[in-house]
Each structure stands twice: as structure tokens, then as C-alpha cells.
Design a protein around this nucleic acid. Structure first.
Lengths: 213, 213
DNA sequence: TGGATAATTAAACAGTGTTCAATATTTTTG
DNA sequence: CAAAAATATTGAACACTGTTTAATTATCCA
């Protein structure tokens, strides 16, 4: 039986290898400019071999896509020991933005890139859902406890996600050309602060929980 | 001199023709899936001819890009007869979102697409600047009159732009898979309402200017 | 060692952006 | 009007792309 096990190991090894190389190339050069031939060349196999391990180019993309979501969600879960929901919301925004700024190409691949919509359709549901639910539940808690001024959970979830996504994606796609490059990232975090200040309820039931940065 | 004039007319005619066809194809199929050969075929010329009128594929893209910004800015200017700055801000957000939802592919091309970053760099400055200034000045007015709760104009401009951009771009790039498709667009507008309610100052100097939708 | 099985390859197909020598058209000049 | 100069257009060529497939090579089991 050990031959079969070794074969399976070899197979996974190869798959991991392809993913690592492809990932690096996707993030460095973008989806379109990364060719199967280039990936094959880098792993020192012919291009046809790739198709033994992945259905097509999209399949490679989707695998990386899924892994990236796991990585982000793992950061979210760490927030669970914060009990104050508004601070948790702030920290969530902070982590989201930080993740995007630290991994711009990965973020691009997750939320902006527009590569394989054919297959992405089901995949995104699985991937984004746990993160979306995490935000949704948190927003719901904030609204129920009247800690933020909003009323509708769905709209507010969208509002907050849209807000942080907008901030970082305009940056990633280089649309802040009218702002001093040095000031862009600080201003993004400043915008998050202003936002949080604006949306939280003025009435603080348990004696004013000020958000610490 | 009329021969030269006619030649110039013909040239512009041809250029317009190419732009119209290319624009339609970019918006329908995307930048990458639109080929010079296809454009040439549609205007019934050979592919080489295109290069007589445009430097390269990016040059065509950038021309359309510029025109799209003019179109959006034209819609902004119409807001100038609204005197209440907070309502003007709301209307600006509304128009921005409406523009994006009505022209998703055009919006994509303007703010999301990631085609010719080499040449886009200077172009974007010209294009986006007038619209950005429009928003910046408006936000500044709202802050100075203490009609919204924010303090820093730059951060707030970014906040608002990021907010509306995030809302629509997640939609355009199909990342709202976890929300009932029928409800997405209404919820986007609902999010805008919640946002405006949240950021405007509670103190209304001249007797409560309620925003009319 | 031989036969089966699986992995790998190279060539082929139809497509891409772009360039350029050759051809066709139009304008200017004699 | 005809020849020459200028301009416009073409189509083939180049170096790429993703993907398929027949042929080859390597590995495993009896």
C-alpha cells in the first residue's frame, strides 16, 4: 500500500508546487499575464502536465482564491475574545484594511479580479459566506444593543463592507492619484476612525466605551 | 484647403467609428476579450489600419476612459442648483450609485478595470480630478457649516467616495452572492440612506432640513 | 523480464497584440 | 491628362496565449 500512499503524496506535492508558483505569478503579474507555459517552465515540467493536476487555469485560480479566504477568516476569528461589540466592529474594519494593504495582490484576487466568473459563482458563496456571516452577526449585535445608529442589519452590513472595500480597492487599483501617496494609507485609517465615530450611538449605556486604537 | 479639411474630417470619422465599436466591445466582453482583429473586422478594415488611428490598444482604452469621466462629471454639475449642502451630498451619492448601476461596464472601465496602468497614470489625474474636487469642496462645505459630524475633509472625502465605490463595485464584480439578487440594488440605496442619516449632525441650525428622496 | 498502467511530452489548433514591407489609393505637380 | 509623390491600407510574419491529444517515456505488478 505504500506505493499508492507515496503516489498520493507526490501528487499533492506537485499540486502544492504548482499552486505556490502560480500564486506568486498571479500576484506579481496578474491573472492574464500569467501563462500556463510560464508556470510549467518554472516548475520544470511541460505545459501539458499542469492539466494533469488542474482542470484548467481557472481551477488553479479558484484554489488560491479559497485559500486566501481561509487566511482572512482566520484573522477574523481572533477577534472573538473582544466582548465589546463596537470595539470588535472597529477592530474588524482595522484588520480587514490591514489585510488588504499588507496583501494587496491577494486582496485583488479575492475581491476585485474578474477572471473566472463561470466557476467563481458557487465558489464565492462558500468562501465569502463565513466572513460575511461574521460581519452580519456582529452588526446585528451592535444594532440590537443600540450601540450604532443604524436600523437595518442587511443594509448596514453592506454599508460597512462596502465602505472598507471601497477605501482599499480604490487604493489597490491606483485611483487615489489626486492624493499625496505618502498620505493615502494614513488617511484610509483616519477615514475608518471618522466612520466609527460617526455611526456609534451617542448614548453609551455602560459608561462610555471609548475605542482604543 | 478643403481637401485637407475633408481628410481631417474623414480621420475623425474613422476615429469615432473605431471608438464606438471598441467601446461597445469593451463594455460587452471586457478589455481582454476584445481583440484588435475583432474591432477591425467590425469596422470592415484590416487590423493594421487601427494602428494608423491609435497608438495601441491602451490608447483606445484611455480615450474611452476620458470620455466616460466627462459623462459622469456632466451629471455632477447639474447638482449645482441645490443650495443645501447635505442634500447636495446625498444627491451626489445617489447620482454616483445610479450612474454605476446604469452603466456597470462603463463604471468598471473607469474605476475597477486594470488594463493599461502604464499610461493610466497621468490620465487618471486629469480625469478624476475635477470630480474629486467637486466632492472635496462639497465635503469641505458640509464640515465647515458643521452639517456633518466629521472633522477632516480629506479623510471624509475618501470615506464617502470609498463608501459609494465599495457598494457598487462589490455588486459589479459579483461579490454579493450571499444576498438575494432582487434585494441587492434596493439595499445599496438603503445603505446610502442609513449612511447619510448617521453622518449628518443632529443639530440642524436652520430648522431641520430633512432629506427628501 | 513482460505487460499493463500511469505520467509526461511535443506538436497542433485557434486565438492574441503588434510590426512592416508591399500594395492600392489619392493628391499634387508637370 | 499623365506621371510622380504622398498617403492609406493590407496581409503576412513574429512571438505570444490556453487547451487538446497522440505518441512517448517511466513506473509498477505479476
Amino acid at each position: 500500500m505504500s506505493i499508492k500512499e507515496r503516489k498520493e503524496r507526490d501528487r499533492q506535492e506537485m499540486q502544492k508546487n504548482i499552486l505556490e508558483v502560480a500564486s506568486k505569478m498571479f500576484l506579481e503579474e496578474g491573472y492574464d499575464k500569467t501563462s500556463i507555459r510560464n508556470i510549467a517552465e518554472k516548475i520544470e515540467y511541460s505545459s501539458g502536465t499542469i492539466y494533469q493536476y488542474f482542470k484548467d487555469k481557472d481551477d488553479i485560480f479558484l484554489t488560491i482564491h479559497r485559500q486566501a479566504f481561509d487566511k482572512l477568516f482566520a484573522e477574523f476569528i481572533q477577534l472573538n475574545d473582544i466582548e465589546d461589540c463596537v470595539e470588535k466592529l472597529y477592530r474588524l474594519g482595522y484588520i480587514y484594511i490591514k489585510f488588504a494593504l499588507d496583501n494587496p495582490q491577494l486582496y485583488d484576487l479575492m475581491f476585485i479580479m474578474h477572471a473566472p466568473m463561470n466557476a467563481l459563482k458557487d465558489d464565492l458563496w462558500d468562501c465569502g459566506h463565513s466572513s460575511f456571516d461574521f460581519l452580519y452577526d456582529l452588526v446585528n449585535e451592535c444594532i440590537e444593543k443600540k450601540r450604532i445608529k443604524m436600523h437595518d442589519t442587511q443594509a448596514t452590513t453592506m454599508l460597512i463592507w462596502g465602505f472598507v472595500h471601497g477605501l482599499v480597492s480604490l487604493h489597490i487599483r491606483n485611483r487615489y492619484k489626486m492624493i499625496d501617496p505618502e498620505r493615502v494609507e494614513p488617511t484610509i485609517f483616519q477615514a475608518l476612525d471618522e466612520m466609527m465615530e460617526a455611526i456609534k450611538s451617542p448614548l453609551t449605556p455602560e459608561g462610555g466605551t471609548k475605542i482604543q486604537i
